[in-house]
Design a protein around this nucleic acid. Structure first.
Lengths: 92, 92
DNA sequence: TAGTTATTTAGAAAATTATCTAAATATATA
DNA sequence: TATATATTTAGATAATTTTCTAAATAACTA
């Protein structure tokens, strides 16, 4: 899960996730939303992919990126652990 | 919230949060759990404090650190946004 | 097949972050 | 007041991350 935290620490990558929440997008369509070169975006997409926060599927000439929410669920569980109060008798 | 994501991206800082979940601790007690100098730990504590993930209170010679869960809640909300399915008629 | 489009890979430069040692500050105590 | 303890600040170095340009790969299209 360290990869996920690392991946989430960058604002551009979080913006990519927000874009993908609305709809699946090709690498080029994602890059269009940023003031950054395509190789830089490609690098960010790669980190998101390695963290299992997005999936990539080749479709003809394009690569379509989509959200993968499974790791999001793991991370939420991690956070809930902090918010949740310990019950009496649940000392560890 | 960017500070929080940045702060959470480091494993040592996440370990500090875990220690503080169990009980409040002084800077020295926290440092004791790491193979790292006290100034380095102090730096990490400072980032956590700036992100409002921990609170610090001076008590005599020591500084006692404790969890501040308010930002955790914000971050969980952020994540829930990705996991939660859009309802029909909730198009945005 | 040659040219065009979409995307990635390679390698370097710039920016940021983590860590260290040494010194400073603040509090407690003999 | 002098000394010891707890922690931070300052400043330097090392490591990591972000971003770029140039080149490579892969898939379409005339």
């Amino acid at each position: 899960m360290n990869d996920a935290f690392k991946a989430l620490s960058d604002p551009s990558r979080r913006k990519i996730l927000h874009l993908l929440k609305k709809q699946d997008l090709s690498a080029g369509e994602i890059a269009y939303h940023f003031n950054m070169t395509k190789p830089s975006i490609s690098h960010h997409l790669n980190l998101l992919k390695q963290a299992n926060l997005v999936d990539a599927e080749k479709k003809g000439q394009q690569i379509i990126y989509s959200l993968n929410t499974s790791v999001f669920e793991d991370v939420v569980t991690w956070f809930m652990d902090f918010i949740t109060k310990d019950e009496e008798g649940d000392k560890r």
